[in-house]
Design a protein around this nucleic acid. Sequence first.
DNA 1: CTTCAAAATCGTATAATTACGATATAAACA
DNA 2: TGTTTATATCGTAATTATACGATTTTGAAG
Lengths: 99, 99
Amino acid sequence: MNEVKESKLTEQELRLARMFKALGNPVRLEILRKLSDCNSCICGDIVDALPLAQSTVSQHLKVLKEAGLIRGEIEGPATCYCIDQEGLDWLKSKLPQFF
Amino acid sequence: MNEVKESKLTEQELRLARMFKALGNPVRLEILRKLSDCNSCICGDIVDALPLAQSTVSQHLKVLKEAGLIRGEIEGPATCYCIDQEGLDWLKSKLPQFF
DNA sequence: CTTCAAAATCGTATAATTACGATATAAACA
DNA sequence: TGTTTATATCGTAATTATACGATTTTGAAG
């Protein structure tokens, strides 16, 4: 919708916007907090902790992963998710220098 | 089986989510960067700097204001916008302690 | 009081997000 | 092989976001 028009934002700033967008949803923030608390988590545990359908949670996890905020690793029949510390550290370092 | 699951986010975390949501849009990030650069700005200058209609920019400014990221002050026939340093400082302080 | 200019708000079309149930996929095991 | 279990993806409905032009509001100046 707002992409054909010349944005004066740098690639880094657009990455920042994508991260903020992913963070700007209470459900996803809750998932992140849980992952931050328990270090790493089987997807099913996250589903159990939320009042949402499995497919909905899976969708949110995908958004977080694509934003570079979490990582998912297949562990046997399940998938283990964890914070993407590299991505979060990048965000934390960029925030103060942006504003 | 029918556990009642509700959001376990605190009021502060919901405020964080609202701020992130406002930040998660390239146009609004561009507005913020401009305000950060020029310290304070007449609304019209922001409109002129963007390839968007005045009404659209005004809407984005409203979102940023409601999220506590900018402030607007009526100055004669115009409105002068500036960064809400208090709000941004709060965000910057909360981010590292959340993750 | 009227006019002008700046900004906000309204009405609305379109696009994106969020949610769900249904279905597909992939790994482990019988 | 087929079954089970966990997760991802599909199709879709409802809601929210984004954009625009038109209109209203507000303050300053004539």
